[in-house]
């Protein structure tokens, strides 16, 4: 069953075509990766899905209903939560408050929301740091906080925007394990934009490759990695760099 479906989605910023007629389908319970060089339109695509930007053409359906045109908070309440590439914690609030406010999306009892935040905090190794202000966290911890807060809204699907960037390899492995466990144990569907290939290859069921806003390949990770177009536009360029 498809959980997320994009049909011919395009977005233009004045002259620049940021997302060019992209169609894709994400099956429920899978991990789906979106890769591509910088400026390929990946984050713009996320913002379109999450409702932070409006599309020029196309349609987006989530869980069987059209969601383009809805506000970001409405889309979150439908069960689609996102993280931001440039992390956006609530800086003056504690780590615990940050996550508990996420829980409050579906829990109106404040005390219960703080209690239930524990699960997400522990999943991302933030329990011991819950009393700290979010502004005092290191970047890797902020990335984890971003994920914990999104997860706290109890989504069916999590959109992760480069949450591995800036993490050391053991930290990447730890987050990969956490996400794998979430996907396996709770059936959480994950869509991730990621440059860290070891995370993509070990987690993703399918990979979608964008270049200049358009789709150039899609398929299982191993197949996509061998695609000459992908090597030329992205992997090769990175290997050379």
């Amino acid at each position: 069953m498809s959980l997320l479906r994009l049909d011919g989605v395009s977005k233009r910023f004045r002259g620049l075509v940021a997302v060019d007629n992209v169609s894709l389908t994400v099956e429920a319970g899978t991990v789906f990766a979106i890769i591509g060089p910088n400026g390929a339109g990946k984050t713009t695509l996320f913002s379109l899905i999450a409702g932070a930007l409006s599309l020029d053409t196309g349609a987006i359906a989530f869980d069987g209903a059209r969601i383009n045109g809805l506000r970001p908070d409405q889309i979150c309440m439908r069960g689609l939560a996102r993280t931001f590439q440039i992390v956006r914690p609530f800086p003056a609030l504690s780590v615990h408050e940050n996550v508990a406010i996420g829980v409050m999306a579906r829990e109106s009892n404040v005390a219960l929301a703080f209690a239930r935040a524990e699960e997400s905090l522990r999943a991302f190794d933030l329990w011991d740091k819950r009393e700290q202000r979010a502004s005092a966290l290191t970047l890797p911890d902020r990335k984890r906080l971003e994920m914990a807060r999104a997860l706290a809204t109890r989504p069916k699907m999590l959109l992760l925007d480069e949450t591995m960037a800036g993490l050391r390899p053991p930290e990447v492995d730890r987050v990969v394990e956490t996400l794998r466990a979430l996907n396996r144990d709770t059936g959480l569907t994950i869509v991730m934009i990621e440059h860290v290939m070891r995370a993509v290859t070990s987690l993703a069921d399918r990979v979608h490759v964008l270049n200049h806003g358009a789709t150039i390949a899609e398929g299982p990770p191993k197949q996509v990695m061998r695609d000459p177009k992908v090597i030329a536009s992205y992997l090769g360029a990175e290997a050379l760099g």
Partner: peptide, 26 residues
């Protein structure tokens, strides 16, 4: 300050876009 609304205000104050992303009607 202790209510759900109070917490959602603080989130809105800190970062309106992030607040929207976690389901708050800003």
């Amino acid at each position: 300050r202790r209510s759900r609304l109070g917490h959602q205000w603080l989130a809105t104050r800190e970062d309106a876009e992030a607040a929207r992303a976690i389901g708050i009607n800003v």
